[in-house]
Design a protein around this nucleic acid. Structure first.
Lengths: 141, 141
DNA sequence: TCCTAGATTGGAATTATTCTTGATATTGGA
DNA sequence: TCCAATATCAAGAATAATTCCAATCTAGGA
């Protein structure tokens, strides 16, 4: 079975991530993100994690999130100047922010598309990271 | 002559923007942005503006920038959690952040492309604002 | 078991930005 | 022109997210 990162199920744990000591705090932070696959802030993660680890500090949640981001297990996303949010979907994707409901939807690239197909990149640019954020409304259809 | 916003020359002033009182502070903030067409932070704008208006406060620079953004004369752009930057290019575009030099390059859409051509948008989504940020390196060619 | 590196904690510190308040300036109308 | 209403400005205080720091704590290897 091929364990690509974004194929982890809600209960699988990244026990096999090299160089990462899987402490209870990190496991729980990771678990709550995989459980509800949404885009919580560090504060929201803290609230959720406290259900099982009542003594965990917000600083530790920040540390855990940073570590998980550094190891590529989750992604950090920023909307405007709001608090950072954390996203369990590590596949390359963008986000649609529904102004009415506040909901955030993942937006995938259509298969086979290439950045250079639609953007005038500076000559010689080697892209390492892409962030696409859309804001708008969902028409009540 | 067709004065589209993004066609203003460095010396033209937005004296004709409806509902906007063009105070010396706002004019100067606008001018320094149009002069060097880069992506300064509020602090950098403050430094530049102080050359001509030595008594202007940082709070006023923030106020002016916000007002100009609200009136669509400039754009506010955010990279990660860094300080906001302000961009005189109001045409729809993205940004390429060169990790090596720190330079920020505007990235235009190729003519005729449509968001829905390369992104799987949620059904019924009406896009009001797009933010595209690329990070990478410029290959020394 | 003991040691050590790394992890956790709580609180203090930092930093960008916003808010508050009083002073000042500008506008449109009498 | 003069006044009143309104908008803007300035300075510093306040806020909020995040990071830093110093003191434990813990797990895993020798």
């Amino acid at each position: 079975m091929n364990h690509r990162l974004h194929d982890r199920s809600a209960n699988s744990l990244p026990e096999a991530c090299p160089g990462l000591r899987m402490t209870p705090q990190r496991q729980e932070v990771y678990r709550v993100l995989m459980n509800r696959r949404d885009h919580p802030t560090a504060n929201e993660v803290h609230s959720r994690v406290k259900k099982r680890l009542p003594n965990i500090s917000l600083a530790t949640v920040y540390n855990c999130l940073e570590t998980l981001v550094d190891h590529g297990l989750i992604r950090q996303v920023n909307f405007e100047r709001e608090s950072s949010r954390y996203c369990p979907n590590v596949k390359e994707h963008g986000h649609f922010h529904d102004a009415a409901s506040g909901a955030i939807h993942d937006v995938e690239f259509k298969p086979g598309v290439n950045l250079a197909d639609f953007l005038d990149l500076p000559p010689g640019a080697v892209i390492e990271d892409i962030e696409i954020t859309l804001r708008g409304k969902l028409a009540a259809s």
